[in-house]
Amino acid sequence: MAKETGLSGAINNVTQKQKEASFDHIGIAEKENNRWYVLHAAPKGGSQKQDLASFLKDQLNDGQKVVIYRLKPEYQKSVTPALKKAESMLGKPYNFNYILDENSYYCSDYIERAFRENGIFKLEPMTFIDPKTGKTNEFWTEFYKKKNLEVPEGKPGCNPNGLAASEKLERIGEF
């Protein structure tokens, strides 16, 4: 679950969909040889396969909660191909611009691409507008100014809140 300040707060400020939950990171769990892993894209390590215990330790030590979702039964057949796709994208650097790029991924981009073949999630026009002011959130204005880039308002993308809000998922619980 998202923090309220910094990058996490800025992501959540313009993307939160659910009143009871807000997210700034997303991954996919995989069981392999009786061990659980999380495949995800993170600023530290890029696209990676991390032992679940290590992932949970990182998140919980950072003051985050971890919420577990599962695809509804009618979409379960897409899990195996998504895991194969996610495995094929491991090792790519993190996308610090949050603009779709074939050579680097941000967390929700990594997950959307993993499931893209089966249309589980969809890209939507990104927004960086603060719903309270109706103007581009100041964090994002400064963020992209420092990178000498325009705010990618309306460009295709995805975010953890948008993916978590999918009607194809069901909430299982949280750590």
Rank of each mutant, 00 (worst) to 15 (best):
A2R: 14
K3C: 10
E4H: 13
T5Y: 15
T5I: 13
G6L: 07
L7P: 00
L7S: 08
L7N: 11
S8P: 13
S8Y: 07
G9H: 12
I11Q: 04
N13M: 14
N13D: 14
V14H: 15
T15H: 02
K17D: 04
K19W: 12
E20A: 15
E20H: 15
S22K: 12
F23V: 09
I26C: 03
I26Q: 01
G27M: 12
I28K: 12
K31M: 10
E32Y: 12
N34M: 11
K44V: 09
G45H: 10
G45K: 09
S47A: 15
Q48T: 06
L52H: 08
A53P: 00
K57W: 06
K57A: 12
D58H: 12
Q59S: 09
D62N: 11
G63Q: 07
K65M: 10
V67I: 09
R70Y: 05
Y75Q: 04
A82Q: 01
A82S: 06
P93L: 00
F96V: 07
N97D: 15
I99M: 03
E102R: 05
S104M: 07
C107A: 04
S108W: 03
D109C: 03
D109T: 07
I111M: 04
I111W: 00
A114P: 00
N118T: 07
E124C: 00
F128P: 02
F128V: 04
I129D: 06
I129K: 09
D130R: 03
D130V: 02
K132R: 13
T133D: 10
G134F: 03
N137Q: 13
W140I: 03
T141A: 15
F143N: 13
K146G: 05
K147S: 00
K147C: 02
N148G: 10
V151P: 02
G154D: 09
K155I: 00
P156V: 01
P156D: 10
G157S: 07
P160E: 10
N161S: 08
L163T: 04
A165W: 02
S166K: 07
S166W: 12
E170T: 14
R171H: 04
R171Q: 15
I172V: 14
F175W: 12
F175Y: 13
